[in-house]
Design a protein around this nucleic acid. Sequence first.
DNA 1: TTCTTCATGTAAACGGTTACATGATTCG
DNA 2: CGAATCATGTAACCGTTTACATGAAGAA
Lengths: 187, 187
Amino acid sequence: MRELKYAILGLVKSQPLTGYDITKSFNDSLSKFWDARHSQIYPELKRLVDEGMLEFKVTIQGERLEKKLYTITERGKEEFANWLGTDEELAATPKDAFRMRLYFGENLTKPELVDLYKGQLEKLKQRISTLEKRIEEIGRVPALKTDDFPEYLLIMGGIYRDRASIEWLKFCIEATDCTELIDVEDY
Amino acid sequence: MRELKYAILGLVKSQPLTGYDITKSFNDSLSKFWDARHSQIYPELKRLVDEGMLEFKVTIQGERLEKKLYTITERGKEEFANWLGTDEELAATPKDAFRMRLYFGENLTKPELVDLYKGQLEKLKQRISTLEKRIEEIGRVPALKTDDFPEYLLIMGGIYRDRASIEWLKFCIEATDCTELIDVEDY
DNA sequence: TTCTTCATGTAAACGGTTACATGATTCG
DNA sequence: CGAATCATGTAACCGTTTACATGAAGAA
């Protein structure tokens, strides 16, 4: 547990960062596997300093705006490396409201069910195309150890995941006799 | 939010249940999309009674063991039906420690990375075979509106999901040059 | 000058987990 | 008789979200 800790350690390990920088990272690339608000990050940073995993140096931006640049300590590096290599159990199946709706689907009329399917399919299609666009931006296959490489892997993970969701939805559409009401070719 | 509420409403809607029964359901079929402990369920039941969504009747098991049989009210049925048909946004990407490890994978030696891959692949393979066994138990394709049908859909969802995870892992193994160190044919 | 971004914090509330607590019933 | 299961609750804690709060710097 306390996995936010390792996300922060991992980020700060590669370069000194402020809490603000870390917050931004959680809204960009990291959001593919973790996210956090600044209200959670600042207390965690304080705690990591207390535990000797991080150190910080106050710097002045412009005239008097103080910011805290965090760096990782030896102890922090050890802790991070130790966690990184440990193989954990499969994550518990995440709570999923859409699956819950499908589970109780017998309480829906066919048009309602069809709308649920369509809505989900449309959003998945949308997200896949956003992810694919990002892949194109990166420019096909970035070399190993490039900055872009880890993000590339995670975006591909998202694409695999969403495509599987679509395939499963098509399967459900078939199984619930909705084939004539949805143009599955579109997805 | 407060989605546990709808899970309970959906369960009680089809038949009167005790808190204990509901807890059991969360460990069986429902765990495919939601789960909860009795310590969360009992307070939620009380709250749903306060809100007029549920009613209960105390019955005696044996000599003097009291149990509360919950039934859904009209108000509860409305609330549930209302929620069931609403199409929500795609769920936020769930936090995922394995993906986080991969993201920071450049800090790992190749054998460590290979162990991570292997561990994950092995566990996914395991889980898929458990799910497939359950499909066989159910006996191929249950008819629509059967008791087994919703569970069938969700188990298939799990299989699609896990297979996609394996395909993605194979992709990562290829991209990180680990092909010679893992026998991907096994998965 | 005004708006956006940079920058850092705290407080209240919520959903969920773990642990504590109790007692009856049923089955081997 | 003892163990497993049935049955119901509470308390403490943890991770996370939403809202509250402040102010400087940079860009238009």
